[in-house]
Amino acid sequence: MKLIYRGAEADLLLGAWAGEKAIHKVRKPLPYRLEALDRAIRSHRTLHEANMIHSARSAGVRTPYLYFVNPTSALIVMEYIEGERMKTVLELAPDDIVISLCRRFGEDVAAMHTAGIMHGDITTSNVIVRDSELVFIDFGLSLHSAKLEDHAVDLRLIKETLNGAHSRIASVAFGALLDGYKVKVGEARLDATKRKLSEIEGRGRYAKVE
């Protein structure tokens, strides 16, 4: 098996499962974390992630197929997705493609939220662009939640990621995302979510107080 990505939390290895190309996601022990704490976090997140990937798929969002799950060894084996990370695509794409991808992004996020799922870690590294589809990965921090607060936290992370890694196109991209989001949730819910989002930002330390 070949290491294809070393994340903060897990390593992704490219291998096979029943003759198909497959990703083996292993949550390796984090040596800086106390062992008891580390073991509990890893096994909990593994089982939880498998459940959430399944729930998101049921909500109509594209996610990898699951092949095998073992919480004790913190291993998930899943479908290999051919494509590029959205982070890379956004860096190179012309503005009109950025807009259409982000609009799509917004629709998919809204589909999850409507089904009561908070992804919890939506950065542009956790979305793979396959043809014109978006495939969502890494549900390790996701939650079952219909709370406005949690949905706004998802949007806030996307906004932070766009500002941090795609600062050139950040405002256009986020605007397009909100457009797509509105299509699925409707104007009233979008407005409520946006208000919550500014409330959360206002709670931050040294936030603008105007």
Binding site: G7, A8, E9, L30, Y32, R33, L37, S125
Partner: peptide, 13 residues
Amino acid sequence: AVTAEVTERALAF
């Protein structure tokens, strides 16, 4: 540990 974990995520990102 939680601080190191978010820092590690930012480092990887």
